[in-house]
Design a binder for these strands. Structure first.
Length: 832
RNA sequence: GCGGGUGUGGCGGAAUCGGCAGACGCGCUAGACUUAGGAUCUAGUGUCAUUGACGUGGGAGUUCAAGUCUCUCCACCCGCACCA
């Protein structure tokens, strides 16, 4: 009987599908377990990264079922997005057709892996029944003033011809097409994720099941800092000639270092600052300033925000007054101050800030030392800024105070005198969600000449994406040209009105899909709170690290928002997060341009899904990158054939009913028994630690032990132990290689369903041995090994050790200084 | 610059509380079976050396004992980065 994986895999995939083995129900008295892999974008073909992702999820899902959990393991498609539209333009097809064809193809590919998905819950975000509720979420955010429109300088990708969220700009380039992103002053839709900045940050602490890496990345991204906003009065402002009077003639700076306020020697303001023209108006430097401001606008984002860029600026001709000491200091427009962080104005302290130091050197601005290192009271800043902690000087009543303490004291002083206010700032910006593209969920907003900007009414959802539109390369969004879509009636006044033509970022679709899986057929509401509260949160989420910020942050935000509205009990979507490594070939990521892509279909065709799964799980720890290796896949295949062969061997003996099996328990039986239970113990631990690469090696060891047993006793096997070994090999191998195990289970004569068979507990007694091997060392160097009875007392061991030939020889009558015995482990004799 | 991580044979990777470094697999070597072998099985496989020594990026330290703990240096990877 040969192992024909093609027949076996096809057979079992059909059985699971037809008998709906993995359909999840809420009605169960087992504890629930929701396991989810990040759903794919239907790009056309499955790649090895997908296979790794889904295999990991599947192994865990199948293991959890065996351990008595009511498992939800769904999958769907993140189906909106730009590639579909670009493909449509290129191939003169419709994004919808392109997307759904791809889904069909990839679904077929995924099924070949043999994953345990509940396909009845499959969702496609581009379907009306899904995006209807994406729009519903928009409406809820709008109702709660968390979706709003504003005109601002936004990231614009000229190649994708749309705006991008900050999170989608990587190193100044478009996350998707890698083109350089520019800035445009546009009116756009935003979600007020900043309202949740504090929660998003502080709740990270609760996420024990997330790696520090991801938590740090999110924490960095949110970028909380505590400081003080301080008002600097503008001296001699030319209010008469000013085009628009400032309500108060102040410039407000933000600083985290109020302890350095006596060292301020200038004020730096961003060129984009809204008050800039009021400051320069009528001053003798005005034209020079205007040129500088224009120049700064033209500078690309990458250059503007790079710390390498030379610090440049121009004196405005205006002065400000430092509130704490009434000093008159110049105001500069500078290229290094960012307009959209803090207040867009910075107090320049050259002595204690590297950037200010560089700027001051360039413009001959005085450098005033106000902090000195403890060990050097005469310290003066000369070559570079002193940013470390120290003691204050030149700071009046705050002199001789440690600066860490002075931060508090001066902040308090400034607040008391009403010169400023404590302030917490975040780097996190609001989430820009509108896109000037067609293939996305339309933003359900109506522009009515009478009622203004109003939300579409809930009962009119979905705002359908029209199918009959034209795509062309250089024009704006097809929706903007589609009269049938644009023209509508206002649901409030009944008058003619126009629709918003922008669509939503696809990250909006994916920020709530895990909730939809809980209740994917519901046509009334996005999900019933009962069902969502039953399944949520996701017990184990698995996906690539590339979503560490984008998708995971957005999902956390939407979850918190829906919780605040009372639709959910949980305020975090993903309890445990596993970020799997990439699949590499020849050290680099598989890509068409390098030509190192391994096609999953071909691998499955050649070795079968089970072998592919085994290799993927075995070759590297889950979180690490995995180097693809063809011969290792073959090794996995070889291993499965070995399993197959030995079980067939014993099956044949069993069926011949010769007197091959006995009830005898000898040393070999015990050894095999020990191997079985040791494997159960270790693999159970492996699952607890997500260290599944070692699990495979332990099953291999157990399989080797069975081979050894077979060879050592050669007939007259103990049936019970052989049966126990085979049963456990199949149970433990099953999550990794489900097809072959189900088939073997049947061949071995089992009538139960392996899928729902209980994972065994190990027998502590079976692992214990009568004899242990201990190591004999002299001064930490191994001299010999010794088998002794387990749990012998120290004196007995000492005797045995000292009488050991090799030890005797090595000791050579030297003086023994110390004798160390660690029970059942090691003897170390210390000599001079 | 800041934050996080990694460093172990020819390769992927194992090593509970500090207690036999290199499990398991790939590759390689030899042998068996075979018309054949890119199938299968068996044995071997860290380095050097005829004893034994040396070995987990380098150096130091703690300890009877260090891949594991401490300090320090180096290399590489990832994330953030003019965030005041």
């Amino acid at each position: 009987m040969q192992y024909y994986f093609k027949i076996v895999e096809k057979k079992w995939q059909k059985i699971w599908e037809n008998s709906k083995t993995f359909k999840a129900h809420e009605k169960s008295n087992k504890p629930k377990y929701y396991i989810l892999e990040m759903f794919p974008y239907p790009s056309g073909n499955l790649h090895m990264g997908h296979v790794r992702n889904y295999t990991i999820g599947d192994v865990l899902a199948r293991y959890k079922i065996m351990n008595g959990y009511n498992v939800l393991h769904p999958i769907g498609w993140d189906a909106f997005g730009l590639p579909a539209e670009n493909a449509a333009i290129k191939n003169e097809t419709h994004p919808q057709k392109w997307t759904f064809d791809n889904i069909k193809n990839m679904k077929k590919q995924i099924k070949k892996i043999g994953t345990s998905y509940d396909w009845s819950r499959e969702i496609i975000t581009a379907e009306e029944k899904y995006y209807k509720f994406t729009q519903w979420i928009f409406l809820k955010l709008f109702e709660n003033n968390l979706a709003y429109q504003k005109k601002s300088f936004v990231n614009w990708c000229p190649s994708c011809r749309t705006v991008l969220a900050n999170e989608q700009v990587v190193c100044g380039k478009c996350e998707r097409c890698k083109n350089i992103v520019g800035k445009k002053n546009l009116k756009q839709w935003f979600f007020k994720i900043t309202n949740y900045a504090e929660n998003l940050l502080s709740d990270l602490k609760k996420l024990d099941g997330w790696s520090d890496k991801v938590k740090n990345m999110q924490s960095n991204w949110i970028g909380r800092s505590t400081g003080v906003e301080i008002n600097f009065k503008i001296d001699e402002i030319n209010t008469l000639n000013s085009p628009k009077l400032m309500s108060e003639n102040f410039l407000t700076v933000y600083t985290t270092r109020p302890d350095t306020i006596f060292g301020v020697t200038y004020i730096a303001i961003a060129p984009e600052h809204p008050d800039i023209f009021k400051i320069i108006h009528g001053k003798q430097n005005e034209s020079e300033c205007r040129i500088f401001i224009e120049k700064a606008k033209l500078q690309s984002e990458i250059i503007r925000t790079s710390s390498e860029t030379e610090k440049d600026g121009v004196f405005t001709g205006s002065y400000a007054i430092n509130p704490i000491n009434e000093e008159k200091i110049p105001i500069y427009i500078t290229n290094y101050v960012l307009c959209d962080y803090g207040t867009g104005v910075v107090m320049g302290v050259p002595a204690h800030d590297t950037r200010d130091f560089e700027f001051a050197k360039n413009y001959n601005i005085p450098i005033k030392t106000v902090i000195y290192p403890k060990e050097d009271p005469h310290f003066e800043v000369s070559n570079c800024a002193f940013e470390a902690n120290g003691i204050l000087k030149n700071s009046r009543e705050f002199n001789e105070i440690e600066n860490t303490e002075a931060i508090e004291k001066i902040a308090h002083y400034l607040e008391n005198k009403k010169f400023g206010k404590r302030k917490i700032n975040y780097k996190l910006r609001d989430w820009l969600i509108s896109r000037q593209r067609y293939w996305g969920a339309p933003i359900p907003i109506i522009y009515c000449p009478k009622c203004g900007i109003i939300a579409e009414s809930e009962k009119n959802l979905p705002v359908k994406l029209p199918e009959n539109v034209k795509f062309s390369k250089n024009k704006k969004s097809p929706l903007a040209d589609c009269d049938e879509f644009i023209n509508t009636t206002c649901h409030k006044c009944g008058k003619n009105a126009k629709r918003e033509v922008d669509t939503m970022d696809t990250f909006v679709c994916s920020s709530w899909y895990f909730l939809r899986f809980c209740d994917s057929d519901n046509i009334e509401v996005p999900f019933s709170p009962n069902k969502a509260n039953y399944w949520m949160n996701v017990d184990q989420y698995i996906g690539g690290i590339e979503h560490a910020i984008l998708h995971l942050l957005y999902s956390r935000f939407i979850t918190k928002f829906l919780k605040d509205l009372g639709y959910l009990k949980e305020n975090e979507p993903f309890k445990n997060l596993l970020t799997q490594g990439m699949v590499l070939k020849n050290g680099s990521k598989m890509s068409k341009s390098i030509g190192n892509v391994i096609n999953p279909d071909e691998i499955i065709e050649k070795y079968g899904a089970d072998s592919a799964r085994i290799f993927i799980m075995f070759a590297a720890p889950l979180e690490k990158d995995l180097e693809w290796n063809d011969s290792s896949v073959e090794g996995a295949y070889r291993f499965l054939k070995r399993v197959w062969k030995i079980i067939i061997y014993f099956k044949n003996i069993k069926e011949k009913k010769e007197k091959a099996f006995s009830e005898k328990t000898d040393e070999n039986t015990k050894t095999l028994k020990r191997a079985i239970h040791y494997a159960i113990k270790k693999i159970t631990e492996d699952f607890k630690n997500s260290s599944l690469n070692t699990s495979i090696s332990r099953i291999m060891e157990l399989c080797n032990a069975l081979y050894k047993y077979k060879e050592t006793i050669d007939y007259n096997y103990n049936f019970n132990i052989v049966n126990e070994a085979i049963e456990n090999i199949l149970i433990m191998l099953y999550p990794f290689a489900p097809h072959i195990c189900c088939e073997m289970w049947l061949i071995w004569g089992k009538e139960t369903n392996l899928v729902f068979t209980k994972w065994n507990k190990f027998d502590k007694k079976a692992i214990e041995t009568d004899e242990v091997q201990i190591v004999l060392q002299i001064n930490g160097k191994i001299k010999d090994k010794l088998f002794i009875k387990t749990n012998l007392n120290g004196d007995e061991v000492k005797n045995m050790a000292l009488n050991n030939q090799k030890i005797k020889k090595a000791l050579n009558e030297k003086e023994i200084v110390n004798f160390i015995y660690i029970k059942n482990k090691i003897v170390n004799i210390v000599i001079k």
